[in-house]
Amino acid sequence: MQHLDEGTIHAWLDGALPPLEAEQVAKHAAECSTCAAAVADARGVIAGSARIVSALDDIPAGVIPGGGRATAPVVGTSLWRRLRFTPGRAALAATILLAVSATLTLRSPDSSSVIQKDKAVDVAPSKPLPKSTPTPTSAPVPVRVTLDSVKLPGPSVRVVNAAAPRKLEEVTNAPQAQVAERGRAADAVTPRDSTRDLQKVRATAQAATAGASSVAAVPPAVSTMTANANAPRALGVRDSVTTFEGCYRLSADSSAGLPEMPRGLPTRFTLSRPSTELRAAPQRFAEARADSVGFPIAWQQLSATQANVTFGSRSARPVSLTLTAGSSVGVASSGDRTSTVRVIRSPCPP
């Protein structure tokens, strides 16, 4: 038998040879020292290449905004993660939910009635409210919505062009005002006939009720900020809502002639999604950490493309930092002073 060629050795090691041929190869490798060395070498190459390929799973974060976590593992991602649920999306869904509720309220022929507290309301757009259903007049009455009955176009639902997979139109690539407008017309919209999309919609709507309270309650330091709905979308980000969760590093914006960082800002900080516990605390929107003690921070997603982070300080005024999708420059403001700072999204430490 001739010496084994490299392809045959790899096929043998991969278990891809028929039994008879595999037996012959094994026998030859046992007898021929040259081929035995080639087999050992091939084993090393296979192991080495596998290790290199697995290194590809760590995707370093680019600049703001990353579409997800810096090193998001593919394995074991939860449904929530797969749906890329973010507080911003929750806010959008909440907006739509409220808009639909308002529409149904205004469309009701009997506007003098008042909905009973804690009465579950089916807001399915295709199912008009019965005439006898009482509706609120002017005062905002707490309403509990049965989520399973909600049929809404979810904020993350995409329309896919079969011929050009990368040219995806995003249903919600619009300012929140337009989304709200769409929400008002939601009774004309029917959900797509897809199990996953339906799950997405339901999941997002469920999340909205949880996230709505935290999104609506804005701390004083943040409430003055104005969302820029027309901010440019970041290249490479196809989500309608940018995910700002992640780790960041700040440095002086030397290109703008600012040799030093604005006072009151840490050199690095982390933003993560709102947690159940924090939701109960009105002044904190999310778990957020900075590198130094003395930087209590809170953050909120202002719009699809902007987030605001407020850094507290014992000795000075709070500093507000606005992050914009697609920009590596953040705007820091404290009192009437405004300056820019370089913002880099960096991989989170393990």
């Binding site: 290199i52 390929v53 290194a55 590809l56 760590d58 995707i59 370093p60 974060a61 680019g62 600049v63 290249l235 490479g236 590093r249 440095s251 050199t267 590596s328 370089r342 880099i344 999204r345 960096s346 991989p347 430490p349 393990p350």
Partner: peptide, 27 residues
Amino acid sequence: LQQQARAEEAVEPEPLTIERAQETAMA
């Protein structure tokens, strides 16, 4: 953009993170 981010990271090194990022970039 990624190169820019890496260049920025080089200003303030984070040994473990950078090492891993370099390994990934090299792969």
